[in-house]
Each structure stands twice: as structure tokens, then as C-alpha cells.
Nucleic acid binder design. Structure first.
Lengths: 337, 337
DNA sequence: TTGTATGCGTTATCAT
DNA sequence: ATGATAACGCATACAA
């Protein structure tokens, strides 16, 4: 008879009690007799009643929703295959905690206004930022009472919760590993864009080559395209003192370079060794399989969810910076020399 | 003084008018003098006021939010690289239309309950399903007054809005193309899971080989792993009448097979030709670059957004099944024989 | 153990 | 041209 979904009033009428009773039963306020509890629950079941989020949100001033903000854009991020697992972890943990997951890209949302709609209008209880966080945006977000968290990125020096991997230490590990394998002349390649992970990883490379006193023959370069990277590598292979190893900021870059290098007739790892980063699925399927750094990204996701939830529960707690451990995965793209 | 964000009452007081006036100004109800309009707008600006979504949702019975439901899971989908562009298109169009985007995976969300939280609690105005839609779930969703749309998948015969590419026709095109190039003995490979796109694509292959009377030497097989695929291919290359072409259901599969085939010493396209599907970014970077089918997935996303929005606006309109056009992208993985 | 009544912030209807 | 006020659906303080 009623086209609209049933509301708490309908349930109360059907269960012959007050709406307060229904609410108490559903929210486990425990002061209701077992008999009515059962009766109310059965009525809800029968009528297919679920409390409307609109009413609850308004009344409770909570939305049970977490916003995920991608920088710079959703599409840009989805393209980076390793975010899959992080999103999986996030979704699992948030769903378990009975929270929704709102998605937005930074560029589009903020083109017109200073903050994304869902933040302006209070549609979320907290925000997780992924892919980076431009300073200027960080400032704006700070003016908001909204808890937020940087996931797989960080704003060094800023008092913001964050979860990252230790890219610095990981690249130190890789560099030391290469050194152990006899490599001395190395090249590290990154993209031209500024990115927390790329920067810290390169810093790790530079710190360790310096410590090993290889800095005169180690070098970091930034490239626009795979072609550029390959050209730069070949240049350094044809010198009198050719490089013997190339490090990259992630598996994707490594794989692209790898194939184009091979297409140019250069054998890996015979002529030059290569390392990746992230241990994305396909890094074990390249020829040769990539030696890389593994990070449990599902864990990053679940930990991220937990952290933002706990921050919401306790806004005054001290800032937390959590580091997810990494491991070096040894495959066949590095030769002992 | 007030720790909470300002509400419409605060604005009204500051602008020395009633809350009704504020509401009318903000919602362009046009019956307010230009002078007060300006005054109210300035006050909003000054106070940093934005209407709370909670209040609006409750009153208007609309959430301005679209739910995206992934089957089977978020992680599973994010892994499929080509969803990036679709999500980009979706996000762009929805944001432009002032809508939020709520995300959930099918498996996790529905583990505990029959429908995802955001559907049960009326947190969205419509749902877009991606990756597939199990019959049983379709049924449940139908019991809901909620508009929904199948994006890049379809439930054949069901009266549900959908946007798909014409995988059937596209594989017909590929098969005819191979036939033109002199190929007669072909193998089509798909995964073991049931999936709308894989099924229709294979049907296209089968229909066209039948039409060309190649069905005695054309075959479709399902494989669990790349290794399986490669084994099956090599088996058929070593027969007296070896196959000359292998078709796949997507670029990803094609690339994986390609590399393992080459690792096994088989040259492509000299010994066997290969085709992909989807024209994902990396398909032009394989060696050799893949001949494949291009589908404008950003367009799929934007069209999907438009369709669900128009469905929400007009629930009674006839069901629409929209097909996004495709084109054959000729590269170097097919040899003329 | 249960019911009554109020307010969350908004939009919209009706007066003025 | 503007203001007072009643919903929207829910949670909860307080009364019974």
C-alpha cells in the first residue's frame, strides 16, 4: 500500500510498540524485554525494514562514511595497478566496521570549488588521501575539523597521520644487495613528477651509494618516457666504464624498460641487471622475473582503515606515523659479477 | 564560538533574514530581491557555510549519490587495468552532475547481509554494477525500488539498463580480419570463469568461423593459467596442420601468453599470430605491438553516468541497452600468410 | 520495561 | 519579497 520503504513508525505500529522501543532494540540499548526484542526483530525482518541512513546521519551527526580522495585523479590512480590491493584492504576493513566508502578524484572535484563536495557538505566522517597531497590542499583540509590520513604517502614534517612503507630503507637494501652482488656503477631512474615515494626511494639509493662510496659512479635521473630511459641506459652502457645495474622506482617502469631494452638487443641480466619495486603481480612474469621489493598493500589498506576509524573515535590522540615493513624479493633480473 | 560548522540558522541570523530566505537564495528559487541575494551569498561566503547533506537528504529524499558495486570484489576489479578509464569517465560525469560516488565490492558487502549497506539504508539514488551480475543478485536488487544499471556487462534477456561494447561483432571483425590475412586454423582462448564479455566474444569467434566454414579447424578453449594456455598452443603448433593464429579475450591475457611463448622460443607473429582485446595502454608496448580491439572506456563511463542519472529522473522510461562502438587496431602481431 | 517529546538541518508550503 | 512553520526519519533524555 505504501510505495515508500517502511520507516521506524511503520515498524512500531506493526510491532505494537513505540518508535523508541524499536530504536532501542535495533541499537542494542538493552533495556527491552527479550520478548519485545524478538517481536520487534521479527517485524523488521518481515517488513524488510532497515533504518534510513538519512535520518540517522542527521540525528547522530555521523555518516559512517569514509571519503577516499585520489591525487591527482581516480583514473590516474586506478591505472597504477598496485592500488588494487590497497583498495581491497580498505574496503574489507571499512565494510567490516560498517562504514561506507566514498570515492573522489582531487582534480575534478576541486576544479570548481576549494574542497570536494563531500567534504564541504559533511558527507563523510573522515578522509583518506592517496597518491599525494599538495601542500596548498593540505592547508585547506586542515581548516576543516575533519580527521584525515595520508595513505602510502606523507607530508614530511607535517602533523598528519600517515601510513607509508619505508622506501628509503628499502632502496638502501636494494643498493646494498647490488653491491654485494659485485655491482659498482649503478643508475637509478625515476619519473619527472614529484611524488613522495619516488623521492624517498631515490634518497635511499643516494644515501647508500654515498655510504658505500660509490657516489662517483652512481647517478639518479628523471625521465619522461620509457624511450628516454632506454636511451639514457644505452648511453651509459656504451661508455668505457659501463653501468652494470639499473634501479627503478616501481615494477611497472622496470617492466617497460626491460622489454624495450630487450627489443634493442640488450640482454638482462647478462649485460645489465635491473630491479623493480612494489612486487606487483606481473613482476614475477617478466622475462627474466624481476628482483623487487615486496610491500603488503592489503595490509596498508586495512591498517589505513583502522587508523582513520580510531582517529575519528579519538580526535585528540597524538599523531601517528605508521610504517609497513618490506622485504626484498630475489628473482632473476640481477646477475652476480 | 560555535565549534560546529555553521548551519542555515546561523546564516539567517547573520544575514538578518529568515532561514527560508537563505534556502531560497541558495537553491535559486528566485523570488528574492537582488539585494538580499547578494547579502546572503556574502554571508555564506564569509561564514564558510555549505548546506549539510544530512539535512538535505532527509528532507528531499535524495542523496545525490550513486553507488558503484563491483563484482566480485573491488580488488579484483581494480586489478583489471582497463577499468581505470571507465572509473575516470564515471567520476568526471558524476562530479559534474554534482553527485557523489559510493563504492563497494560484492563479495564483502554481501557476505553478512543480503544487500550492501548503502543499498539497504538508502544511501544512494541509484546503483551501477560492474564486472558482472549474478542472477540471484539481480533478483534481489529488483525487489528494490532503486534504479540500477549494468556497465560493461549485461544480463541477456533481462529488462535492465545496460551499457556494453559489442564483443560479438568485434570478434567477428577480428576473425574476418585474420581470414583475410590468410589464416584458417585458429585457436581462441578464454578463462574458466563465466563472464559476459568473455562469453560474447567467444560467441563472435565461433559464429564467424562457422560462417567462413572454418569450424572444423577453429577451436575455443578455457584455461586456468598462462602456462596452460601456452602448453595448449604449443601442442597445436606441433601438429601436422599447425594453427597459425591465437585469439584472446583481452590484451592482458595476450601479453602474458605472448611473453611466455617467446620465452619458449616461439616467434610471434612469424610462427603464430596473436590478437588481443581492449587496447589497454600496454598493448602497444608489447613486442610485437598487439593487434587488438579499441573501445572508448572513458566514454563508457560518462555514458554510464548519464544513463543512471536519466533513469533516476525518469524511473518509468523504457529500458535502454546502449552499445559503445569499437574499432580494430592493426599493429604487428598478425602476419599475412 | 516502555512511551512521549524534542531536535538534528534542510526544503517547501503557506501566510503575510 | 519575505517569514513562520511543518515535515523528513531517527536517536535519546526524560517521564511514567
Amino acid at each position: 500500500m505504501n510505495p515508500n520503504p517502511p520507516n521506524i513508525k511503520d515498524v512500531a505500529k506493526a510491532a505494537e510498540c513505540s518508535i523508541a522501543t524499536v530504536s532501542c532494540v535495533l541499537n542494542e540499548r538493552g533495556r527491552i524485554s527479550e520478548a519485545t526484542k524478538v517481536r520487534v526483530r521479527e517485524t523488521c525482518q518481515k517488513m524488510g525494514y532497515f533504518p534510513s541512513s538519512a535520518g540517522r546521519n542527521l540525528r547522530s551527526r555521523r555518516t559512517e562514511t569514509i571519503g577516499i580522495l585520489f591525487y591527482p585523479s581516480c583514473a590516474h590512480i586506478f591505472r597504477d595497478i598496485f592500488y588494487a590491493e590497497m583498495m581491497g584492504g580498505l574496503e574489507e576493513e571499512l565494510t567490516q566496521a560498517n562504514h561506507n566508502l566514498l570515492l573522489a578524484g582531487y582534480d575534478i572535484s576541486t576544479q570548481q570549488q576549494t574542497l570536494p563536495k563531500f567534504i564541504r557538505e559533511g558527507s563523510v566522517d573522515g578522509v583518506i588521501l592517496m597518491g599525494g597531497c599538495p601542500d596548498e590542499f593540505n592547508q585547506r583540509l586542515r581548516k576543516t575539523p575533519l580527521p584525515f590520513l595520508l595513505l602510502d604517502t606523507d607530508a614530511p614534517g607535517a602533523a598528519v597521520d600517515s601510513i607509508t612503507s619505508d622506501g628509503f630503507r628499502a632502496m638502501v637494501d636494494i643498493t646494498a644487495y647490488l653491491h654485494n652482488k659485485g655491482h659498482r656503477r649503478m643508475l637509478m631512474i625515476r619519473h619527472c613528477t614529484d611524488n613522495y615515494n619516488e623521492i624517498t626511494r631515490c634518497q635511499g639509493f643516494e644515501a647508500e651509494t654515498r655510504r658505500l662510496e660509490l657516489d662517483s659512479c652512481a647517478e639518479t635521473i628523471q625521465v619522461q618516457t620509457t624511450e628516454d630511459a632506454v636511451r639514457e641506459i644505452i648511453l651509459r652502457l656504451n661508455r668505457p666504464d659501463p653501468i652494470t645495474a639499473v634501479c627503478t622506482v616501481n615494477d611497472d617502469m622496470a617492466a617497460n624498460i626491460l622489454y624495450q631494452l630487450q627489443a634493442a638487443g640488450i640482454r638482462v641480466p647478462e649485460q645489465v641487471s635491473m630491479t623493480g619495486f612494489d612486487n606487483t603481480g606481473f613482476s614475477q612474469n617478466t622475462c627474466p622475473p624481476l628482483t623487487t621489493i615486496h610491500i603488503d598493500r592489503t595490509l596498508m589498506g586495512t591498517e589505513g582503515a583502522k587508523m582513520i576509524l580510531s582517529r575519528i573515535q579519538n580526535p585528540g590522540a597524538p599523531v601517528r606515523k605508521q610504517v609497513i615493513p618490506h622485504t626484498l624479493v630475489e628473482r632473476e633480473s640481477v646477475k652476480t659479477i
